[in-house]
Amino acid sequence: MNRLDQKLRELKQEKRSGLVCYFTAGDPGFVESSNLFSQLGQAGADIIEIGIPFSDPVADGEIIQAAHIRALSAGQTVNKTIELVKEIRLKDNKTPIVFMTYLNPILQYGFEKLVCETENLIEGILILDAPLEYQDHFKLILNAKNMHLISMTAPTTPVERLEQISASATGFLYHVAENGLTGGNLNLPNLEKKIAEIKPIFNIPIAIGFGIKNESHVKALANKADLIVVGSALVDTFFKKGVNATLEKVRAFSQVLKQTK
């Protein structure tokens, strides 16, 4: 049982939804990024998602695209993202960490090498552009080190495919709220219907991400989804207003979830 399994069990016991906070590694620079990530758990993030920057992030909207470009311009690499995690763990050894990445940077780094070097540091990896058909190899390597490959589903995923994905999914499921990019718009009634459709198929917690921007979104999804992922809205705040305003926002989202039991 790793930090993520532990956290998911706690959330279940507390009967509340968990908050997942996404930021891009090294945005706007290594030092600022490390400082922010190290305080997220304290501020109320239940799970930390760290994006490995990539030159061509096709699934991301404008805000996270810009974050990737800033991080790369500041010299962020896969290796430095591992260094970043080591720094975070000196200050926060409890909050689960999941990498969110595109295939090419981790293939070039060497997937096995990456997994070996992050053993006991991170709890899972989500590969945005590696759908079910290409996952077996990655799953084997991760599972051998007690880590999860986080699976994704989208509104377009048909029921029989949901079932196929469910058969080998571990950790939690990341459901993309809308057909679209990170930071898009949310259609809550449709989303709630989709969650109701997915829930019986999966026996692991379900995270909802893409388009969750404010406290009212978080409140609307509290206790409907097991985990609520906030990315673009936080990345934007961090870029425009800095670390304190960002942590303030994390606290506010966390409060909403703790109050909506």
Binding site: D56, P105, Q108
Partner: peptide, 21 residues
């Protein structure tokens, strides 16, 4: 170039050592 993944295909790409295109 060197083999990698971009735009959904595994193929030869111009990229740096860190996999950035």
């Amino acid at each position: 170039g060197k083999v990698g993944v971009l735009h959904g295909n595994l193929t030869y790409l111009l990229q740096d050592l860190d996999g950035q295109i």
